[in-house]
Amino acid sequence: MTRQTARILALHGGLLAVLFAAQFVLPAYHHGNLARIMVLASYAIGYNILFGYTGLLSLGHALFFAAGMYAMGLGIQYGGLSPAPAFLAGVVAGALISGALALLALRTTGVAFMIVTLMFAQAGYLTILYFGEYTRGDEGFVIQTAQRMLWGINLSDPVNRYFAAFGLFAISLSLSLWMVRAPFGRVLVAIRENEDRVQMLGYDTYVHKLGAMVVSGTISAAAGAAYGLLFGYAGASFASVQYSIFPLLWVLLGGAGTVLGPFIGTLFMFYLIDLSSGVTTAYMLIAGVVLVALTLFAPQGLAGEVRRRVWRGLP
């Protein structure tokens, strides 16, 4: 193991250790917040694989998040599934839908890719509304405590919930760290930098992008399924444009194309909105201002700045 690798493992393992230990010291309010942040950060990690590492800006990831959430939720509500197979159903739904969308959307590039993903996600959102009889539309439906018993463990209990969220986050983070250092991830980064050249090195860039989109969509769906399961609710708002913009915002803020960026961005943005929503109902104003400010002044994001100024080897 090189020194570089040791440092990388120490940094990312250190974060996981801190998050694991935090559950014993945090007051209840922040304890609950952090569980939520870890699930949302997993969503951001999924988004980052496509946007940060492959350079494809999707405006439709809410489709994958909601696919996971609804496949899980509807599976419990109407299919009588228990949490484990329901979660699995969510993950599979995410993989299938992201694969299907990738087949269409990857025929386009740049701005067209953004609009295509936006449109299909919007169609997904409207479909949830259209089948309001089952999905309860904007209102959503509650997943009862009794339906959230995983192998005798009550997922609505804060301690268990934190632990489950931590598990999801640890897996997502490790997967993303492993992937971006593996040959597959290196090719994704190269595609982001110069797709034409990658092709002329003999790589099938289409297949790589397809793989990136499916991995990205599947992690997003796992986060969506976990969110519904842990917090006991599925609603159409999680499929709306806003939930496609959120991971973009978190990743931009934390640092696109860095492994830690999604977590950092989610953490900051969550508390920023949490604080401002105490002052005004127009808390999305903060999101707007941050988006504009980031594109203007810090397109690299927080972890990106660290990479640029302090440690160039930051993965």
């Binding site: 980064v189 190269a190 930098e193 110069n194 034409d196 050249r197 092709q199 002329m200 003999g202 099938d204």
Partner: peptide, 21 residues
């Protein structure tokens, strides 16, 4: 990419390296 896979390599006239790597 399949032709490259067969054993061709092509270097660009306009330098086309991965600048940020």
């Amino acid at each position: 990419h399949k032709r490259i896979g067969l054993g061709m390599a092509y270097t660009f006239q306009i330098t086309s390296v991965f600048a940020r790597l």
